[in-house]
Amino acid sequence: MSKVSKSSLFGGEQVLFLRLKKHKDKQAFIEAYDLYIEQVYRFVYFKIGSKEDAEDITSMVFLKCWNYIYEGKLESHDTLKPLLYKIARNTIIDHYRQKQNRVTVPLEAAAETSDPSLDVHSAMVSNLDFQKVVQEKLPLLKEEYRDVIILRFINELSVSEIARILGKTSGNVRVLIHRALQSLQATVNQNEDHD
């Protein structure tokens, strides 16, 4: 993505943030889309477990983010990445509320029935068995644990970035990550023991 690399050359995320905050630069937002689309989609997908819903929600996240910037609500303490994740989390919550009566396909079921053309899924199932197990067990974790597992170990965000997204202190996030990892490990190993 040439636009991302061009943006990185001139100061990357900070320059994008300033262009968006001061000038509400539309082109800068498209560059931000190129920069963050994959990680936002991944976050949503691993939370939702449905390709179609993940696509819809991710589209909505970027549009909501643009409206937020356009209305001049972008504060100096909000860099773009944490803002996108915050909006993504809220949009997922809204999605669950709206679709309460709709039958959703859990992530593990999606793994069995999903479209083989979906690259993210095919990449997962073609990997080691451990990965498949992790993928299946992730939806069984508490919401908060799942958030930190995806943000820290899949999307590789820093502790301070996660703290800003979740509205917690860095210390609290470290504890949360530790407990989430223990919980996932216990769930995965429990499954292995039964096997």
């Binding site: 689309i37 994959e38 989609y41 991944r42 691993f46 053309s117 979906l118 690259d119 993210v120 899924h121 990449a123 997962m124 990997n127 080691l128 451990f130 990965q131 197990v133 992790v134 993928q135 597992i149 170990f153 899949i154 999307n155 590789e156 990892l181 996932l184 490990q185 995965v188 190993n189 292995e192 023991d193």
Partner: peptide, 20 residues
């Protein structure tokens, strides 16, 4: 049994999955 290190490694591998 999966160790914590292996677990983290497998989680990181999920990142390599590309999107359509």
């Amino acid at each position: 049994t999966m160790t914590e290190k292996e677990l983290i490694k497998n989680l990181a591998a999920l990142k390599s999955a590309s999107i359509n």
